[in-house]
Design a binder for these strands. Sequence first.
RNA 1: CGGGGCGUAGCUCAGUAUGGUUAGAGUACUUGGUUUGGGACCAAGGGGCCGGAGGUUCGAGUCCUCUCGCCCCGACCA
Length: 567
Amino acid sequence: MRFSKAYIPTTKESPKDAQLPSHIYLSRAGFVTQVASGLYNFLPLGKRVLRKIETIINEEMERSGALEVDLSFVTPAELWQESGRIEKFGKELLRFRDRKDNLFVLGPTHEEMMVSIVRNRITSYKQLPLNVYQVKTKFRDEARPRFGLMRAREFVMKDGYSFHSTTEDLDREFDAMEAAYKRILERLGLTFRIVEADSGAIGGTGSKELMVLAQSGEDTLAVCDTCEYGANVEAARRAIRTAIPEAPQADFARFKTPNVKSIDDLSAFFHVDPYYTLKAVVMRAVYTEGSEPVCFFIRGCDELQEVKARNSVGAIDLVDISEAELRDIGLVPGFMGPLDQDKIRFVMDNDTKNATSMICGANEADYHFVGVDLSVMGDVAFADLSAVQAGDGCPHCAGKLLHTKGIEVGHIFKLGTVYSVPLKAEFLDENGRSQPFIMGTYGMGVSRLVAAVIEQHHDDKGCIWTHATAPYLVNVMVSNIKEEAHLAYAEKLYETLGNNGIEVILDDRKERFGFKMSDAELIGFPFTVIVGKELNNGQVQIMVRATSEMITVEADNVIAKLTELIG
RNA sequence: CGGGGCGUAGCUCAGUAUGGUUAGAGUACUUGGUUUGGGACCAAGGGGCCGGAGGUUCGAGUCCUCUCGCCCCGACCA
């Protein structure tokens, strides 16, 4: 491609709405333009990057035996009514009617459609397993699209679905998909972690997220500094604590603690480590039908992890509750404890099981119990409720957990029969009995990956594409096109590189050196060959974008050097 | 969906508190000339329903009401 013939509208100014590096640079360098909230146009460069990612995904899917399909973007609403998700998705589903007044939705994901193409066609265990996928535009009418391509309403996703007759076979495929996804991200040149994720309300038996590590990531991860363990904080576990503060000496007693309400107050009042205090957090748990207040007890040194708390009671949501409401129930804010407490449902953190020497509220204004032995609690609900903190021990090795930020670019999920049962998608097993398909689902955000590459690879000058994602690997830049010898050399180099299968662009624009250099850096081609005045000495320079290195090479040795650099 | 902010040239923004020449700058664009290794300079041009509707006024980019759009924080996000 010749730059002079290309359509690459670069700008000096960033769009005022852009915040993230990926959004700023992808706009400034002419990869995308915004159309409306959460809607983007891909210009020629952006489209090339998108296609490169898709190609790698397709190659790895082919390699792992998955079959590509392409399902209708517009899907009949009946399918969504059948699965019950039309209510669950709510306003995120963009609905509309056709001329015959039939209701349709734009597909936000394709579980229903995928099940529909398989059911009644795959009817025997002999036809299983099956793994089908597509790379397709999706639409979710997000309440708040943001961060450019990172959270758009219209986006490109690879979504795959596998169908199995046994959970063992699902496990095998799940592992195969994890390996395939890992290869895809490695080929793209990204630094990532595969982490354990919250399976959430959808149930299923396991899910993992693929997280591209970047400061701007929306998810917080707990990762081990020694082994491969990593988890979304929503699902992170930690080793049983070994460094335990010295226990306070106290017999069980009811102690007057006037106006001592917070953990800090309590800890200061008794000169005791917060580890030995019990924190009460009351929230209203909202269920599909109805709601109730629930009290979660954790150690004073811990923080409640809301997703874990929500899962522990099977709620779909937890909302804050006012002190006035607590009083109405008969609770005493600041002095709540689990002993002799029958006003509301409560759940205790696993780490409080059999805890001794504890201080907790006495459910009476200005009184706490000290020297509490929680093993007396016996048969109450325990669950993992607390948030993993930086420095906590890894559950798999002796390492420490650290917090880091990640961009969720993939999510693989063991669905089990969550969709096949309501959609009545069944096959006959070896014994001639009808069974629902056991399913897995494997998603990857293709357009989000475009942004993720830049979030992870940029500097203050612009994009730094990895070799596999670059719109063009080599930019041949003619410093001054009026120098006929320079232009002629560049033309020849451009042609030769192209003939050698290297994706190359020739910057033959009638612009000045600085202008073209800035564009090369903003766009982020991995290598720019500068053909300019050095050519008079028989030399050219290669700028390596990632390192800003300038390599001077003999003019007739450029291809060899580039080949070496590309590796 | 709650809270906050912003809509003026292709883009980035002044101008709006206190209504009053022909609505500005930078950049981008067109033409001519000079320049040519880090977003050049000179000159001459084109480009605006001041988001939209209604109102107040002799007069509205500016004041009032309504509306639409976009961004940020939060809630939400199989």
